[in-house]
Design a protein around this nucleic acid. Sequence first.
DNA 1: GCAACCTGTCGGAGATTGTTGACATGTCGG
DNA 2: CCGACATGTCAACAATCTCCGACAGGTTGC
Lengths: 105, 105
Amino acid sequence: MPDGDVFAALANPVRRGLLVALRDGPRAAGELAGHFALSRPAVSEHLAVLRHAGLVREEPRGRHRYYHLAAEPLAGVQEWLHPFERYWRDRLAALRDLVEEEDDR
Amino acid sequence: MPDGDVFAALANPVRRGLLVALRDGPRAAGELAGHFALSRPAVSEHLAVLRHAGLVREEPRGRHRYYHLAAEPLAGVQEWLHPFERYWRDRLAALRDLVEEEDDR
DNA sequence: GCAACCTGTCGGAGATTGTTGACATGTCGG
DNA sequence: CCGACATGTCAACAATCTCCGACAGGTTGC
């Protein structure tokens, strides 16, 4: 169902801040807008991007609309990241590159 | 020195593909352009974005210019991701949200 | 009902991004 | 030197992103 690109959703600092804010629990849209020195429509559109990426789910209650964090798509980001992990954790990778350079020389 | 935004650099699928391709070892710019059904200048610009984000380093050798993967900035992405991990690994998080909803009702 | 409130959507302005063709720079082999 | 090659950069255009003001729909409380 998440037809939007999760990576593109994370590209914007406001949207990353929204996800961080939602880590403390569900928040209403207007309450979130207060944290970002931004007009309400702008925040609303950012929330729509996050919704399309499957990163938040909305729960209308009365005249408020509460947004909940839905972090599952972030697992996909971590999976994509995982094959790169050895390139900054293993010092062997840097060593291997050096050897490769020497071979080509 | 990486003045560019790493998250923004990862937002583009071509740039993610470039990083994946560079995992197999250093590649020349023209060689990379062949993999993506894109004009060579376009790939060059994408490589410039990755360079500004500190995700690749270039090594001119002769008339070729080899690009190496520099994955260190990805560690920052994983760090940002880490606090969210429990929200899709722990089932307790979902349970806590349910309890919170019941409290508000 | 009705007024006040919360929120999403629409239209448009301004900035950024993605792409291409054309050009400039620098390098190798004869 | 010189011609062929690999590559970065520039001008220009289209597409997309970001933001705002204005408006519409639904909800609560009187």
